[in-house]
């Protein structure tokens, strides 16, 4: 992929907070990603999804009843990016979602690079009836370092 032009606008306050102390978790604010960068991120994200997620979450993102959570119209998927990035970095198990429990483990995907995580999250945030802003590698990096 050639020269991704990604502009991340972090609020001055959160950057300031980061500089002074590690404690307060960084706030991720609006970012603008150019249309072409978004397109290539989505393309890579699709491949990531097919390699690392499709077994459990299925081609249609519908998951498996009682086993693997659906990603379709998921409030966690389109919601707070920090929470979403952490689900990927740390994994998730035994947490009820919308009153349903899932008897499987969501493995940590921390072995993926920041860019790969950003791509796959951008992909699921813009597929399976979801529509939400892109996730950038810089945002993933910020969360990864903040723990």
């Amino acid at each position: 992929m050639n020269k991704l032009k990604i502009v991340v606008l972090l609020t001055a306050t959160s950057v300031g907070a980061m500089a002074q102390t590690k404690k307060p978790a960084p706030k991720l604010k609006a970012n603008t990603v150019s249309a072409s960068a978004l397109r290539s991120s989505l393309e890579r994200g699709k491949e990531m999804y097919a390699t690392y997620c499709v077994t459990c979450h299925q081609t249609d993102g519908g998951g498996v009843p009682n086993l693997n959570a659906p990603l379709i119209k998921s409030s966690n998927v389109v919601g707070d990016k920090k929470k979403l990035i952490n689900i990927l970095l740390k994994g998730m198990q035994g947490i009820d979602i919308d009153g349903e429990s899932y008897s499987n483990v969501m493995p940590s995907a921390s072995y993926l690079t920041d860019q790969q995580i950003a791509d796959v999250l951008t992909y699921i945030r813009n597929n399976f009836e979801n529509k939400a802003s892109a996730v950038t590698a810089a945002e993933v990096n910020l969360i990864r370092k903040s723990k």
Binding site: Q58, T59, D60, G62, G63, V64, P65, P70
Partner: peptide
């Protein structure tokens, strides 16, 4: 109830 099950649901 369907010819092919692509996804269990």
């Amino acid at each position: 109830g369907v010819e092919v099950v692509n996804s269990p649901r």
